[in-house]
């Protein structure tokens, strides 16, 4: 229903008239995609984590391009700052080999490739088919910190608090799981 309202509004956009933002978006998107591909294909495990940093950072740039500033910074903070560090610690703790490990991919590689390609084809076809004539108006900033803060603490405060409980639960769970049983003296 929104579609019908939006399309006439954006009818001034030419189908093949990329703006500068679009060009940057596509280029950064290609970088993100390449980094993601390297993340899942590289044979050096630590490199995979580093390529993940690149992909997630690129996504932060994409958020910025979509005028979602707050999300972009949160992305950088939490993902690049926290999650990747955690992942690196995980790699170290499980004594992942530094350097090329030839058996980084399991035997299901080709099955996985087939499934992934099929999913990609389906999704891309559907998405392109659905949003062929849809444009985003980037005229005003949609995700400023202020706006986000207002909605978050005015309308989403209950889920927010629930989420804090979830985080606490995850914290406790992680501690319990990784705690070592005390051996009897």
């Amino acid at each position: 229903m929104n579609l019908a309202a939006v399309v006439p509004l954006d009818s001034t956009h030419g189908f093949l008239s990329p703006s500068g933002v679009e060009i940057v978006f596509v280029l950064v998107g290609l970088g993100v995609l390449g980094a993601a591909l390297l993340t899942v294909t590289t044979k050096q495990l630590v490199h995979a984590a580093l390529w993940l940093v690149v992909a997630l950072g690129g996504l932060a740039i994409e958020y910025l391009l979509l005028t979602a500033e707050f999300i972009a910074w949160v992305q950088v903070l939490i993902y690049v700052g926290a999650v990747v560090v955690l992942v690196l610690f995980g790699l170290m703790l499980t004594r992942a080999p530094i350097g090329v490990s030839p058996d980084a991919d399991s035997g299901n590689r080709w099955l996985a490739l087939g499934v992934a390609l099929a999913a990609a084809a389906t999704l891309v076809t559907l998405v392109v088919d659905a949003f062929r004539c849809t444009w985003i108006d980037l005229g005003t900033v949609a995700g400023s910190t202020k706006a986000n803060g207002v909605t978050l603490f005015r309308y989403w405060v209950l889920p927010f608090e629930a989420l804090s409980v979830l985080l606490l639960a995850a914290l406790v769970g992680a501690i319990v799981l990784s705690r070592r049983e005390k051996k009897e003296p």
């Binding site: 996985a112 099929a118 999913a119 389906t122 559907l126």
Partner: peptide
């Protein structure tokens, strides 16, 4: 017993269902 194999079958099934619905 290969979890990834199970997961692959699951994902393939989802894709097939999506295609069928579409």
């Amino acid at each position: 017993g290969n979890t990834q194999g199970y997961l692959s079958a699951l994902a393939a099934g989802v894709v097939v269902l999506a295609v069928v619905v579409a």
